[in-house]
């Protein structure tokens, strides 16, 4: 890729974490959602995987993606920054696609997943969070001087 121009691990001596200020709240909400999605998918897979393999596999995948996104938001460096973009975009697409499918083809997603009905079971947080995450990321690119971050 042509955008590999900057050396990733070069951080200013301060080693200030990318996440400061209100972004920390974002990370905590991500962590809570990751915990919730993980817990639910664990229960679903242990107890009733054969009832709805598609929905439950999706639950597990989404849980995994939320966990990775949480880590990526906290971690420093250009690679993690890219991982954060990928996982958060995946969540955005996931909640939109699965949310729409659960409305138009409910037989596919009769069993709840985090993203069913645009995340209504999670107070629509799965719908709002990726947007906030993207806004946050676009304001905090590691290419700009991290010293000015706050």
């Amino acid at each position: 890729m042509p955008t590999e121009s900057l050396p990733a691990p070069v951080n200013p001596p301060a080693r200030r974490p990318r996440i400061a200020g209100v972004g920390r709240v974002l990370v905590v909400i991500y962590a809570i959602l990751a915990l919730g999605a993980f817990g639910r998918s664990l229960v679903q897979i242990i107890q009733q995987f054969d009832q709805a393999p598609l929905a439950y596999t999706l639950s597990a995948v989404s849980a995994f993606v939320y966990i990775v996104a949480t880590v990526a938001l906290v971690a420093r460096g250009a690679v993690w920054y890219r991982v954060a973009w990928i996982t958060i975009s995946f969540e955005m697409v996931g909640v939109l696609v699965v949310g729409t499918l659960s409305v138009v083809a409910p037989e596919l997603f009769a069993h709840a997943s985090v993203w069913s009905y645009y995340g209504v079971g999670y107070l629509f947080i799965p719908l709002v969070l990726p947007v906030l995450g993207m806004i946050w990321l676009s304001r905090k690119r590691p290419t700009t001087n991290p010293e000015s971050a706050q």
Partner: peptide
């Protein structure tokens, strides 16, 4: 069990990171 972990983690966070956002995080938890 998840519920038990959550406020404990938020308090732990609040003791380390002494900013107003930690107070907000306590509220979120």
């Amino acid at each position: 069990v998840s519920a038990l972990l959550l406020p404990a983690a938020a308090v732990f966070w609040a003791l380390i990171d002494r900013t107003k956002w930690s107070t907000v995080i306590l509220g979120v938890a």
